[in-house]
């Protein structure tokens, strides 16, 4: 039964799954997001670049309403989840969007498996055995089959981040949001995490990645978005935005990032 319900809600690959219109966010007088319009298609991989303070993390956090936007609308699968007032289907939206943080945010009092299972049990209503089975499967996929019973403090940063990815994936999200997930990692640990993300992109997951990894963006992204000052300055295929940027601000930023 539940399968048919999900089928009717299914969005075909290539169709718009998330539509953001006129999104604004300010803290008091400080405008962080001025006017963001964004259409995201199912299966699309988007990398968001930009200098710090440009609003990219805030935009990502607004997309699953961890930050409440001050204006604009967000539609998920054709349903309005935010239209300026109180969010309507807050927990629905969050269930459909997985988020991975720069600082991992694993639950320190649970094993890797426990971390991945807890929301499956409490939010998805899965039985503990089924959830644990799913967790082990998911942890195996990110290369941590040996570590299912370890606590976070026994794992490296890269391993912790892969647990965090598994934790979000186990909820079967429609969209994955990555907020500078490699920025807190030692250089030698970055690749393992990016490999997992690359595989995920290949599997058809819709992804929005705020990142400083230009190489990753060039190779994996379908679309690159450059943000500055709370606006989307430029967007397009990576070859265009990264190889031949039209806007001066993009050129300047890429010059600074690539020249070292």
């Amino acid at each position: 039964m539940s399968e048919t319900v999900e089928m009717t809600k299914e969005v075909a690959r290539g169709e718009t799954i998330l539509r953001v219109h006129n999104l604004k966010k300010s803290y008091g007088k400080l405008e962080v997001l001025r006017d963001i319009d964004l259409d995201i298609k199912k299966g699309e991989v988007i990398c968001v670049l930009g200098p710090s303070g440009s609003g990219k993390s805030t935009m990502l956090r607004c997309l699953n309403l961890l930050e409440l936007p001050t204006g604009g609308t967000i539609d998920l699968k054709g349903e309005t989840v935010f239209d300026g007032g109180k969010p309507k289907n807050l927990d629905d939206l969050r269930r459909e969007t997985g988020m991975v943080f720069q600082s991992f945010n694993l639950f320190p009092n649970m094993t890797a498996k426990g971390n991945v299972s807890i929301a499956q049990i409490r939010v998805r209503g899965r039985k503990k055995d089924a959830a644990d089975e799913r967790s082990i499967e998911q942890l195996t996929k990110v290369g941590l089959a040996e570590k299912v019973d370890e606590y976070p403090d026994r794992l490296s940063g890269g391993q912790q981040q892969r647990v965090a990815i598994a934790r979000a994936l186990a909820m079967d999200p429609e969209i994955m949001l990555f907020d500078e997930v490699t920025s807190a990692l030692d250089p030698e640990l970055v690749k393992g995490v990016l490999d997992v993300m690359r595989e995920l992109a290949d599997s058809g997951m819709t992804m929005i990645c705020v990142t400083h990894e230009i190489g990753f963006a060039r190779e994996v992204a379908d679309r690159v978005i450059f943000m500055d000052g709370g606006y989307i300055v430029e967007q397009g295929p990576p070859a265009e935005v990264l190889g031949n940027p039209k806007e001066e601000r993009t050129q300047k930023f890429l010059g600074l990032v690539l020249d070292h």
Binding site: D91, T97, G98, R122
Partner: peptide, 23 residues
Amino acid sequence: VPRGQTEAARSLGMSHGQAMRFI
């Protein structure tokens, strides 16, 4: 308890009450 813990819990779809109780 660091704010990131609440954010992680909420981003997984837990309600405020669930995040408090389980995390």
